[in-house]
Design a protein around this nucleic acid. Structure first.
Lengths: 215, 215
DNA sequence: GTCTATAGGGAGATAGAC
DNA sequence: GTCTATCTCCCTATAGAC
């Protein structure tokens, strides 16, 4: 995977920086994280960071791009696995939840990147690539929704609004470890809670909230 | 409403600061907003801010507390208006959407405050009050959900998980003006889109996503 | 590829005149 | 209640030795 790594088990400095930055940016946001602190976490001098990334914005763009690619990969694999539109959508939601649960920084950073566009200076190549990746994710999910509607498996809904709804209900609960834990009384990333979350969300999409008898 | 205002139509400096800070903090986050910039927007010198608020964290706490009170007031009024649990929940969701649509900064700042707890130093009196307000909001919504379940109007669901789901799907779409506009092709705060959002969300809660024929 | 040293600027906050 | 001037600290980024 990494052409420069003779020993795949040893993580390069670049990857160590990316991992540490991901955690810090996710928890506290771009502006609140200083390179001094990041360097401390990684175990390097502050200046050494600039040998791997040319600037702080560029580092953030790299972190953000890596997460978007991870999510895009998950979406593509999940939707490619076949089945009816209903099966594919339900599997997609489950797989995304598993991904977000396995990578605690992803949901926070994804959510941030969706409403912190003002944060970053501008138009590095990595940011442009990320825009494309994000657009690809959205269009893939839209496609399965439209497919299900066309096949008569889904109600007739407004696809863009449903897209926003799905993002909110899938991503948000994993974006806030502390608040989520307050509400649930348990760590949302704990396997049992993850499983329950998948079940509850699947049932809500299948049946809505109203009781069958009340219909 | 303001005891010190002889002329209610003239906004005090304190309120001007709160309004400007609310907009800036919502768009860019706590750490990214400098007091110099805030002072410029308000039209004051930087030092004058410290005559109205003792520190930046305390100012942020005041802004955050004001928003939480606004939302809490909306929740209490909406739930107090009576009707069945179904009617009260549906009205609550509609009223919250109207509030978030009317106050574009609220959704962003609320969402931030739900997953940026690490942002702020600690335990000012205003933050403790805010914690109580937030807890009150959550317990009020939980109450109507449990009531509907007990009355057999709602399916048997896991209330805390549904709470997280509702927050995500109600708040998130209004937290990101730019991304939301990209997805919808229109400004999410436009009256027509707000109306459609309320309808789509109500229908999703009533029926889920699956087509009636497919059941 | 990592380090020390430092430049250059902006941050939050204070002092004190008006 | 607002201002100017200033303090101290930390920020991103660079220079250059090893």
């Amino acid at each position: 995977m990494n052409a420069t790594a003779a020993h795949p088990h040893e993580q390069s400095s670049r990857d160590k920086i990316l991992d540490a930055a991901e955690g810090l940016f996710a928890r506290r946001g771009y502006a609140a994280v200083g390179l001094r602190e990041l360097a401390e976490v990684v175990g390097l001098g502050k200046s050494s960071l600039f040998h791997h990334f040319e600037s702080k914005p560029q580092l953030y763009a790299a972190v953000s791009a890596r997460i978007l690619k991870r999510i895009d990969g998950c979406v593509e694999r999940s939707l490619a696995a076949g089945g009816s539109a209903v099966q594919r959508l339900e599997r997609l939601v489950e797989d995304l939840i598993d991904l977000l649960a396995a990578q605690p920084a992803d949901a926070r950073l994804l959510l941030r990147s969706l409403f912190e566009d003002d944060d970053l200076p501008g138009e590095t190549p990595e940011e442009i690539e990320s825009k494309g990746t994000l657009a690809n994710i959205m269009s893939s999910i839209s496609a399965v929704l439209r497919e299900g509607m066309d096949a008569g498996q889904f109600r007739t809904v407004h696809v863009p609004h449903l897209l926003l709804t799905l993002i909110g209900q899938v991503v948000f609960p994993f974006a806030s470890r502390e608040f989520g834990a307050d509400i649930l009384g348990k760590d949302p990333f704990e396997p049992g809670e993850v499983k329950r979350r998948k079940r509850e969300l699947r049932d809500l999409l299948r049946h809505g909230l109203l009781a069958p008898l009340g219909r």
